[in-house]
Design a protein around this nucleic acid. Structure first.
Lengths: 187, 187
DNA sequence: CTGCGCATGTAAACCGTTACATGATTGG
DNA sequence: CCAATCATGTAACGGTTTACATGCGCAG
């Protein structure tokens, strides 16, 4: 039990870094946190309610003029305990799902037209990852301009971002290898 | 719809590469295919039944002496159509879940003892990935000893394996960066 | 006056994990 | 004789995804 239950922990970390509403969390999951954890707003609202009921977070109603009211959540003491307990548990092996790898192996059972379509798709996919890499690199220059003068939280966020950059660079190099291989099949 | 429905496609590719029983598929998902798609035997049996009911695969009862009978599945024509249709659809962006990255950012909210526990955990995790890399490299030498003389299917399986190797190498380099960063916090 | 961003939800369908269950054969 | 491997399943639970729903304010 408590195996797949990890969105809670990602939310706790995000709220400790900065309190915020469900909507704000959903936007963070689309951006920064979404680099290593994805979640939709429906999931987030549901989990926030449960976490509030369990006393892990507290909500503060905030009236906004010109905008709908919102509920800003902060981590309460029990939530912090839950997080530190979880931090000391073993990391579960990642369960991988690489759709593109399945399609590449599947290309052995498709014809030349199918392989041409796959090449086009790999090129589009590659362009997406190039955009992501540039976004990460821009963010790195903006958020960590002076790597020598960072506090603990910044250093940890920076090393996670470097992981994202290394991942995207690896993916781009591999996709070039894939494209070479797919082109080489025609010859 | 038909978005998360992809275990079917991984099974179709695996059965086209080699027909086999549910049990055999489960073992492949623990090994070769499991590099980019994970599935348990329960999932596989459930999906195979549905695929057989839908006419995507056909089953052949095989009596074995000294072993339980088994049902060997092969891909039928409709299954092959389903696969080629899917192959030409856009690749969905991967939904990422990196528990370790969440824990690293969470370490900013834990004490020195918690960070020491995280370092130990990262080292254990690193050892696992090193084992995986060596397994991939051994498999590469066994299955692709002469990269100049490969057929289409082998070349495609090889480029997917090279992706796995590149991923593991990237992870190991990043984990070294993580360990340096975590050790640097104490100073 | 239309579309976008802010803000929060419900409902249904589906997927994935864990636990439990059965039974045969082979090797140590 | 005990453990491991082969072989196939059921049931329950929980997590994820998709579709649907509401309503305000602002900018073009």
């Amino acid at each position: 039990m408590m195996a797949g239950v990890a969105l809670e922990h990602a939310i706790l970390v995000s709220l400790l870094e900065q309190p915020g509403s469900g909507y704000e969390l959903a936007r963070r999951f689309d951006r920064s946190i979404g680099r290593f954890w994805t979640a939709t707003h429906q999931q987030i609202y549901r989990v926030l309610k449960r976490m509030e009921a369990d006393g892990w977070v507290t909500a503060e109603e905030i009236d906004q003029d010109g905008r709908p009211d919102k509920r800003s959540y902060s981590v309460a003491t029990p939530g912090r305990s839950v997080l530190t307990t979880w931090l000391r548990e073993p990391v579960q092996p990642e369960s991988v799902r690489h759709e593109l790898a399945v399609k590449i192996r599947g290309a052995a059972f498709d014809d030349a037209a199918g392989r041409a379509a796959l090449i086009a798709e790999v090129e589009r996919y590659r362009a997406d990852h190039e955009t992501t890499l540039h976004r990460y690199q821009t963010g790195e220059q903006r958020d960590f301009p002076d790597p020598g003068a960072l506090d603990t939280g910044q250093r940890l966020r920076h090393v996670v971002l470097r992981g994202g950059i290394a991942y995207e660079q690896m993916v781009l190099a591999w996709l070039d290898d894939v494209l070479d291989t797919l082109h080489g099949l025609g010859r």
